[in-house]
């Protein structure tokens, strides 16, 4: 009897040993964390840091001169214009596609879902090539365009089209799983109570999907402003006319004007950081409300 009374505290003194069955030894933990951080530092943090240090290498004045010279300003304007056309188009498409797919049952739905994702699995170069094959001088309607003096390729319309193609799925693929998880009960209730279709959409559906919608829009916007390959094929690289910001970065870099190239690149890097910050904020908002809402968002 006495012996158990004495033995017990000794056993209880060592509970730290027990969880080791489901956790790693400390040295393994430290090693794994070290490897993970070293990998991320090498491949993410140092390249990000390099953009800003290279941009400021020749001083703040040179930096601002590089981003305010006329060709840079015209590239910034073209990038903003392109995104301002491409994003709303894909936004309307995303809402329409999500409404059809999430609220109704019909045959061929899985095929439709696969087709909507197609632009993500196509190389950006091929995304540009398809428009060259249609609108180019040897293309399907190339001769007709020349006859009517309409310029699509190597002009702004071609850049917008290529951008619309590469950013096509972003909004739809955010909204579809979200709206599927929400079902149709709330909309049906509104309709039964006498609301018409538009009222139901604006007052019932839209408030439910607003964060998912914003999430899709900022990702779509980031890609629209940053797209390089597809736009490069259709742009023609005319300085001050058909150069977007990423193309302007390429031209400056190839002219060995490194600090100016990195100065314009740093604006795009800031856009990327802002996108990630808003994305994290929305994730935090949605996870607070409905934890299941953001499934299927990875893999852009």
């Amino acid at each position: 009897m006495n012996s158990t009374a004495i033995a017990l505290p000794i056993v209880l003194d060592k509970p730290a040993r027990v969880p080791s069955a489901t956790t790693e030894p400390v040295w393994v933990k430290v090693l794994l964390m070290g490897v993970a951080l070293a990998f991320l530092t090498l491949f993410l943090f140092i390249p990000l840091l390099a953009v800003f240090t290279e941009a400021l290498r020749k001083g703040v004045d040179a930096y601002f001169a590089a981003i305010t010279e006329p060709d840079a300003l015209s590239a910034i304007r073209l990038t903003l214009t392109t995104a301002a056309i491409a994003v709303p188009l894909n936004l309307v498409f995303g809402v329409a596609a999500a409404w059809t797919i999430a609220k109704f049952e019909f045959r061929g739905k899985n095929l439709l879902l696969t087709l909507i994702d197609l632009p993500f699995s196509v190389s950006p170069i091929i995304s540009g090539l398809i428009y060259v094959l249609i609108f180019g001088a040897q293309g399907w309607i190339g001769q007709w365009l020349i006859d009517h003096d309409i310029q699509i390729l190597f002009a702004v319309p071609g850049i917008v089209l290529a951008t619309v193609f590469v950013t096509f799925p972003f909004v739809a693929r955010e909204l579809i799983p979200l709206m599927q998880s929400q079902g149709v009960e709330e909309e049906e209730a509104a309709l039964v109570l006498g609301a018409n279709g538009w009222q139901t959409f604006w007052k019932v559906t839209l408030p439910n999907i607003k964060w998912g919608l914003l999430y899709g829009v900022i990702l779509c916007n980031a890609r629209a402003m940053g797209e390089f390959g597809a736009v490069s094929v259709v742009s023609g690289h005319i300085r001050g006319e058909t150069n977007t910001m990423p193309l302007h970065v390429e031209i400056l870099y190839n002219e060995y004007n490194f600090s100016a190239a990195f100065a314009v690149a740093s604006l795009l890097a800031l856009l990327a950081l802002a996108t990630l910050a808003i994305k994290s904020f929305i994730e935090w908002r949605i996870y607070r409300g409905a934890p299941e809402a953001l499934q299927g968002e990875n893999a852009a």
């Binding site: 390249p47 390959g229 990423p246 970065v249 690149a265 856009l271 990327a272």
Partner: peptide, 16 residues
């Protein structure tokens, strides 16, 4: 920041 390669334009990643 793990999502940075999704958000950073490829040309910027390339020159960096």
């Amino acid at each position: 920041l793990v999502d940075l390669p999704f958000a950073l334009p490829t040309a910027v990643a390339g020159i960096a």
